[in-house]
């Protein structure tokens, strides 16, 4: 039970290698930004973090829909697990964004549409995790949780469009934008490395977190049968 499957170890190892390379490229090799200087290097952790969080919540979205349809608790286990990891990556995005904002914008935080919707995203899934953790009726909680997760996901497309629909302090997306990335090609490589690294790290976390959920389900099963036997 201790070390995890071969798949998990390969995922974790590959993530570590990619992130180490991306870190070295982003912090040492790549030149600083013409306008912002070295502080722009925060982009190499900030942008991949939020994309990984979006992927994690997309996994929650899909498995929650499938759970409501199939009522298979294994799907629900993936949803809870992915939500937890998504919250971690959203937290990293918020923290690194604040640290990037202070030396460039001049403020740690401001309530523009992009920042507000990201804070709402974080709160929705923290609420989801609380619902799951404190629930007395696990099956009912799984059902309500799935509905909350599906509705909460709508925040993400809204957040992506927010910088085009409303005036914000936050700049529009640099990567997923009409007309292609607005990042110099030399800067794209560390970005891509960290993208790949964080996505693999997410996969590694997910495999391990789902394993925890399986152990918990099995424990509940054993308790139940033992209780029946008296």
């Amino acid at each position: 039970m201790g070390r995890g499957s071969l798949v998990a170890r390969i995922l974790g190892g590959a993530a570590g290698l990619l992130l180490a390379t991306g870190l070295y490229l982003g912090l040492v090799v790549v030149p600083p930004d013409a306008v912002q200087g070295d502080v722009q290097r925060i982009m190499y952790v900030h942008v991949p973090s939020i994309v990984t969080a979006y992927i994690a919540f997309f996994v929650v979205f899909c498995t929650s829909i499938l759970y409501l349809w199939k009522r298979d608790l294994r799907l629900d286990a993936v949803a809870v697990s992915s939500a937890e990891i998504g919250v971690v990556f959203t937290g990293i995005t918020l923290a690194t964004g604040m640290i990037w904002g202070k030396p460039t914008w001049g403020v740690w935080w401001t309530w523009d549409a992009r920042l507000t919707l990201t804070a709402i995203l974080f709160t929705i899934y923290v609420g989801y995790l609380m619902l799951r953790a404190f629930a007395e009726e696990p099956l009912a909680a799984a059902r309500y949780g799935a509905v909350l997760a599906i509705l909460g996901f709508l925040d993400i497309p809204l957040n992506h469009l927010a910088v085009y629909w409303w005036r914000t302090l936050h700049q529009p997306s640099s990567i997923l934008r009409p007309g292609g990335p607005s990042v110099a090609s030399a800067m794209l490589l560390p970005l891509a490395m960290n993208f790949a690294g964080l996505i693999l790290l997410f996969a590694y976390f997910l495999v391990e977190r789902v394993r925890l959920e399986r152990i918990r389900h099995r424990t509940a099963e054993v308790r139940l049968t033992r209780g029946r036997r008296g």
């Binding site: 502080v39 952790v45 690194t96 990037w100």
Partner: peptide, 12 residues
């Protein structure tokens, strides 16, 4: 500048 970079990467 590097202090902010260190803080961001360190926190992550």
């Amino acid at each position: 500048n590097w202090g902010f970079v260190g803080l961001a990467y360190g926190l992550a």
